[in-house]
Design a protein around this nucleic acid. Structure first.
Lengths: 337, 337
DNA sequence: TTGAAAGCGCTAACAT
DNA sequence: ATGTTAGCGCTTTCAA
């Protein structure tokens, strides 16, 4: 069933049918009604491929997700989809591995589907001019900025929390409760990404409090998986026995680490306190409930869409949004006497 | 940058380029190399719209996910994607709400994107002939069958666990450890879906053990959210104080319920034992670790793809796969003396 | 207000 | 082994 069939059944030309379907004004009411009626009758559905082919662009917006399995992303994506739909666009989700290049993947997605814009969820932090040049549509980085790259503020958009500041805030919560022997559980200290930024916040907080950085308390996991977070925590426990608190850079890592502490004979928070960043629902249900900094999930999904659509429709230029994270008091942090 | 540009740069015709791009055998190695080199050089990406338009069908397979947010689905989807890619097809994921009609959504997806087949993840259990008639491509139901519908075995494919049997198995674990006052936490006793089937398994196990069904211990939540599972468990605790075990029909519900028990002054497993079905990674890290029946995530993702592709390629007809679930011993079930 | 016709980029006959 | 060419279904000038 094509537009041609509809045209024949209505006794009009294909262009008239096309006009009706695309809500063009210059069609007589009589013809419009007739066409819509037939369309309804035969359950006609336009062929998207043909539509997109002839149009310079589709009305699609791509979401490139780097590192699925991240529970926080799984919370944000549905919000984004909804927001995109609401703005009259169609979301195109594409998941890639952490090792893959999201700019390449994004560029391919844009080209092969004539996307109008791109949201990059969880990408790298170190783009330079040549790299973003491959993207010839507006784009917004979500959950990360360009802290390790050479871009000017006017060259890209992003929606993030202030990773360094919030990590510092988390560690300061621990320090405020009397902790000085504070371990950190992170992906890597030098991944030019979230992990590195939060590591800096950790260092900063210690420094300001006059606590010397103890490298033996810095435990890398190599990724964001619970499995490796568990193993890393066990490793740290074998090596050291003198820390009273742990800052994990993600909720899921913290939960796995809490289990590792338990298996290592340590109680949370009596022996070791735990704090993290994310605020996934699950971390509020465990015992003890995780004390964590909540990322604003709703805004994290909606803001990038708003910004992107504004750029697409020429209403605004690149902009940067820093979202606040809020401490959610749980039961995993103890006040040291 | 189109196939024509590539052809010109290589000094060959468009069909030759097309052949190279589609891995046709009858192209000389020299020409093939040259074309691929240029393609690489200019970062040429084929236009999918044009491709799909000219082909009667795309090589796409749709996955309609009903009820995102289900942690188990989030585990299965990546496996499916990978399997689809590996078979040489492209996955098209579409999420819908629990209230939406997955058959309608699927049919639309198929038509507008010329899909070759459809996987329905977490749909309804009660299709009849007219309803599936709207689907004119092969399809496979995943995680559910047609237990409440009127379809013949030869009319549809499915990959599931035996919900009733496995639920019964879970409850029998509790009974085997001396429990007789066993509560159940479920979405609904009559949703014509997973929840109802597992409820039947619960009833069956009690009956076989000579335990009378106590309707006061049947607690509905109305959905699969942790929030409502928590509230429901609190409600049950207010009403009853005499049960020694709970069977939750999903891991996530069990975790929320364990928190509710804790907040209600009950210890797991000392005061109340807990068992569930799913086996999501998280439930192994909490304290106490959840005893649960693990659904085989890998097979649950791969089998539907295998079956669907076989049908698409005419190698097989509809078939039904019942996957086994295995008890994962945790620490949430206590043996009653 | 309507119709005719030219492509959009690609694949697959068909021809060579 | 390679080139030529006819569409796939649709939107959009341009003409009427």
């Amino acid at each position: 069933m094509t537009i041609k069939d509809i045209a024949e059944r209505c006794g009009v030309s294909v262009s008239t049918v096309s006009r009706v379907l695309n809500h063009h004004p210059d069609v007589s009411q009589a013809v419009r009604d007739r066409v819509l009626q037939v369309v309804e009758e035969v359950h006609y559905v336009p062929n998207n491929s043909a539509r997109d082919l002839v149009k310079a662009q589709s009305d699609d917006i791509g979401i490139v997700v780097r590192g699925a399995g991240n529970p926080f992303f799984m919370e944000v994506i549905p919000v984004m989809e909804q927001a995109i739909l609401q703005k009259g666009y169609t979301p195109w989700i594409h998941q890639i591995n952490t090792e893959d290049d999201e700019l390449r993947a994004g560029a391919e997605l844009v080209r092969s589907n004539k996307l109008k814009g791109l949201i990059l969820l969880g990408g790298r932090f170190d783009y330079d001019d040549t790299q973003i040049a491959v993207l010839d549509v507006p784009f917004v980085c979500c959950t990360y900025g360009n802290s390790f790259g050479k871009l000017k503020e006017t060259q890209y958009s992003c929606v993030t929390i202030d990773d360094m500041k919030e990590a510092k805030k988390a560690v300061e919560v621990l320090i405020g409760k009397g902790h000085t022997k504070i371990a950190i559980l992170l992906d890597s200290t030098c991944d030019s990404s979230i992990s590195e930024l939060r590591y800096r916040g950790y260092c900063e907080a210690l420094k300001e409090a006059g606590i010397e950085l103890d490298e033996g308390l810095v435990q890398e996991t190599g990724n964001f998986s619970m499995e490796d977070a568990y193993a890393a925590m066990r490793k740290l426990l074998l090596r050291r026995n003198d820390f009273t608190a742990v800052f994990a850079i993600a909720d899921s890592m913290a939960l796995a680490a809490m289990r590792a502490l338990h298996d290592g004979g340590k109680q949370v928070p009596m022996d070791v306190s735990m704090i993290a960043i994310d605020g996934i629902p699950m971390s509020g249900y465990v015992v003890p409930a995780l004390t964590t900094l909540i990322q604003p999930r709703k805004e994290m999904g909606e803001e990038p869409v708003r910004i992107l659509v504004d750029m697409i429709e020429g209403k605004a230029n690149h902009c940067h949004v820093i979202l606040p994270a809020a401490v959610r008091e749980g039961e995993s942090v103890r006040t040291l006497k």
